[in-house]
């Protein structure tokens, strides 16, 4: 039996701007994502991809609609509840890596564990383990400034894995990387996905989306395509 990790129903997001104008960024969006899926979200700039990712990643709340994460409706959860969910169930990979530049790679990777009350030694051990997993064995005491962008993104991926999340969200993870490095990162994601980790990523590039099994296309706040990657024709 497959397990549903994410289910959104009739999800809407409206931004209310100063001066009384409002903008409907997401309009009645719905889909399910099952465990082990590898989903790419595409769409034109301003179509609402990041807005959707922020809601899925529990950084933001929908204006209306339901969001079930692992069966629990968290559409109207409090900030505190969302922080706990992010800390325990969600991993993030950002376009600009968002590493702490003055801290060692081990400190960076193990950062989320601080908020889970994990002790220093245990954190370091976990960080070393995960750095090895993303191909950065022996790099634990380096600083982010001493490694390349591709390596930095690997560190960020290691960090996203450290709390054994149900799902990893990556908003344009290859946006700041060259083609070759992008492929390396995507191979890493594919590898992780094979190991049973659910991945949702946003991208502009067809080539990147090719790594995913499923594609969701958003157009003007609505889903215009949702199906296998290979069936989508531009």
């Amino acid at each position: 039996m497959t397990q549903i990790v994410i289910r959104i129903e009739d999800l809407c997001k409206t931004y209310f701007m100063e001066g009384g104008t409002k903008q409907d960024v997401l309009k009645h969006v719905q889909f399910k994502i099952q465990k082990d899926e590898f989903v790419a979200i595409m769409g034109h700039s301003g179509s609402g991809k990041s807005t959707l990712m922020n809601i899925l990643g529990c950084l933001d709340r929908p204006t209306s609609g339901n969001y079930f994460l692992e069966g629990k409706n968290i559409a109207q959860a409090t900030d505190k509840e969302l922080a706990i969910i992010r800390g325990k169930r969600i991993g993030f990979v950002f376009q600009n890596f968002n590493l702490m530049m003055k801290r060692s790679l081990a400190d960076n990777v193990s950062l989320p564990l601080i908020y889970q009350g994990v002790g220093q030694k245990e954190r370091y051990k976990k960080a070393v383990e995960l750095l090895e997993k993303v191909g950065l064995k022996g790099y634990e005491n380096r600083l982010p400034t001493q490694i390349s962008g591709g390596m930095q993104q690997r560190v960020a991926i290691a960090r996203s894995l450290v709390n054994n999340p149900a799902i990893i969200f990556a908003d344009e993870p290859t946006g700041n990387l060259d083609t070759r490095t992008s492929v390396e990162i995507m191979n890493l994601f594919t590898e992780l996905n094979k190991q049973g980790i659910t991945i949702v990523l946003v991208t502009h590039e067809e080539d990147i989306a090719d790594f995913a099994k499923r594609l969701i296309v958003i157009q003007d706040g609505q889903i215009s395509y949702d199906g296998p990657r290979e069936d989508y024709k531009t």
Partner: peptide, 10 residues
């Protein structure tokens, strides 16, 4: 922002 995204309570 990163710390918060990674689960840091306010």
């Amino acid at each position: 922002g990163t710390r918060k995204a990674l689960g840091a309570p306010n």
